[in-house]
Amino acid sequence: MSEILAPVDGRAVRVVVCDDEALLREALSRLVDVATDLDVVGVAGNGAEAVDVVARHSPDVVLMDIRMPVLDGIEATRRIVRAHPRTRVLILTTYDLDSYVYAALQAGASGFLLKDAPSERLRDGIRIVAAGNSVLAPEATTRMIEALRPDLPDDTDRVVLDAIRRLTDREREVFDLVAAGLSNQEIADRLTLSRYTVKVHVSNLLAKLGLADRIQAVLAHSRLRNHL
């Protein structure tokens, strides 16, 4: 999964952990702090606390739970992204895919991972979003697509749909794999390409579709899959 392993600007990535379960919060903090290039600078037990902690510590990444008291992770994400555009939010969800993940992505989250993801996948996910990229849990992305697929695209989606149909065969292959939550390295392995070539394909297809990042690509694919 690793696409970026170096600290941000030569320093450790600053992380805030937000979860209403104290034991999980402590476990996640220990898991993150094991890495020398990651540094937990704060913890929060609900979304309101997360907003305050981010304001005090200006972290690079927030690990955000969704269902919490006082203020949920969706509204917390929206407030953090609006007030601190350099702080990235990585949603943590359960395998059965919290129904609010889609809303969190729309609120500005940079991706989501499963709470029971392997330790190194979680640490890599933090590094990836800290570098300005997006990360999605491949185990759950397909289920999200199935759950959120609408019957008909709107006018904006029809423009994207027309652009998708003009992608090259290779770009379409890459688009489908991005939508399935695969990283550039995983796509490269699947298609027997270099990671650089995959990165170029991803950049090209996002430009052709008028999409800003991988998250928007996944959401567009989920809305339009019935019509592709």
Rank of each mutant, 00 (worst) to 15 (best):
D65L: 04
I66E: 02
D162R: 13
V32W: 00
S99R: 15
K199W: 13
E186N: 02
E21Q: 15
A50D: 01
V17Y: 06
A130C: 10
T87G: 02
R121N: 12
S194L: 08
A6C: 10
L122K: 00
A140C: 08
L122V: 07
V17K: 05
T192V: 15
M144Y: 04
S58F: 15
R223Q: 09
V16Y: 03
H57G: 10
D124R: 08
E49M: 07
R223S: 02
V159R: 12
P85T: 01
R82M: 13
E146N: 11
I128C: 11
S119C: 06
V198G: 07
V13G: 00
A55H: 08
H221R: 08
D124A: 09
A22G: 10
Q106E: 15
A27S: 14
R86P: 00
A27P: 04
D39P: 01
D151M: 13
I164T: 06
A103V: 12
L24H: 04
I128F: 10
A147G: 13
D154R: 09
A140G: 13
I187F: 06
V101K: 03
L92E: 00
D72P: 03
I66V: 10
H227P: 08
V16N: 00
N226W: 14
A35I: 02
H227L: 13
R149C: 13
E21N: 15
T94L: 12
L177I: 01
I66Y: 07
N46I: 04
V89L: 01
G42V: 05
L177Q: 07
A50L: 00
G111N: 04
L113K: 01
D65I: 00
A109L: 02
D151W: 13
V34E: 10
E146G: 11
L219A: 11
